[in-house]
């Protein structure tokens, strides 16, 4: 069991897909202006990430090497369709705001990257936990950014008024510039951290 926990933990912090590998940024910037969007995005992400990891892992012995990428894409596309249908059915209001980015999960580099780098060469159970870890890793960064942006930009968290009414929200935080800003600072911090770690070695 410890091994599986390790896989999850590894994806949450030490090799976090968003922070360390810096991929899948489009959706992170786009939907991080509200916590609700971020949560729905994470949910939809998990609906694609985990099953496609499981399927690819279980079929890894029968997928031919040369055709693997198109097959990965097909699998991911199928699950994306499912995720879209579910999101649309149960979370219509939020879905309408961010549907483009949910559709685009199909080209999310994290998912296809894990299919190639992990699921295709690991057993099903490990791939499942990798999927869970990746979802958590993606989700917490996205949600954290969303909390900051929504709090400063609207004074609310997930729609609930948190800050006193006298607070004048900085609208810029929920507009595009702040998305770039937050990611810029985050990447700066991460790269700085990695550089220092490298330096110590």
């Amino acid at each position: 069991m410890k091994r599986y926990l390790n896989i999850v933990w590894d994806a949450i912090v030490p090799s976090n897909p968003v922070l360390i590998i810096a991929i899948g940024l489009c959706s992170v910037i786009a939907v991080s202006n509200s916590v609700q969007s971020a949560l729905l995005m994470t949910f939809a992400f998990s609906l694609v990430m985990i099953p496609s990891n499981i399927i690819i892992s279980s079929m890894r012995r029968i997928i031919p090497e040369e055709l693997r990428v198109p097959i990965f894409v097909m699998v991911i596309a199928a699950f994306t369709t499912i995720a879209v249908l579910i999101s649309r059915a149960y979370f219509t209001a939020i879905y309408d705001l961010i549907k483009l980015y949910i559709l685009l999960i199909v080209v999310n580099c994290i998912i296809i990257g894990r299919a190639e780098a992990f699921a295709y060469s690991h057993p099903v159970l490990e791939s499942f936990f990798d999927g869970v870890g990746m979802t958590l890793g993606y989700g917490w960064v996205l949600t954290a950014i969303a909390v900051v942006r929504e709090l400063l930009g609207k004074g609310t968290i997930a729609g609930f008024q948190v800050l006193p009414a006298t607070f004048q929200p900085a609208i810029i935080m929920i507009l595009p510039p702040a998305g770039f800003l937050m990611i810029g600072i985050l990447i700066g911090a991460v790269e700085n951290y990695l550089r220092k770690k490298e330096g110590k070695k």
């Binding site: 595009p176 510039p177 998305g179 810029g184 600072i185 990447i187 700066g188 911090a189 790269e191 700085n192």
Partner: peptide, 21 residues
């Protein structure tokens, strides 16, 4: 050093997005 590389590209993009607003 903190912003060298990709980070500064994002910061520039932030101001560009601001101007496009």
């Amino acid at each position: 050093t903190f912003f060298k590389g990709k980070a500064i590209a994002f910061m520039v993009s932030a101001i560009m997005a601001l101007a496009f607003l």
